[in-house]
Amino acid sequence: MLEIKCPYCGKRSQNEFSYGGDATIKRPQLGEEISTEDWDNFVYYRDNPRGKHSELWHHVSGCRQWFKVSRDTATHEIFDTCKMNEDFNV
């Protein structure tokens, strides 16, 4: 079980959180003209890196804040976590 540092609450066990996918995905602007290919890239296609990955987690059984986690997908090492409006330090 991972131990994740919520930027609002501090370190908590993984069972308080739910995973929210790739944090680098940007939703297209509302009303934006967008090709099917670009839209599909947004909706369906994700990189599946072995190693460092920026991802979203949601503190569902805690403060209910979404935040960013930089995690190694192979070793589960967590390099940093930060609020949505912040950038990772490492």
Partner: peptide
Amino acid sequence: VLSHLEYYLQVVWP
């Protein structure tokens, strides 16, 4: 639905 709303408010349209 609550998680969905929170996602859009916090992540997509803060």
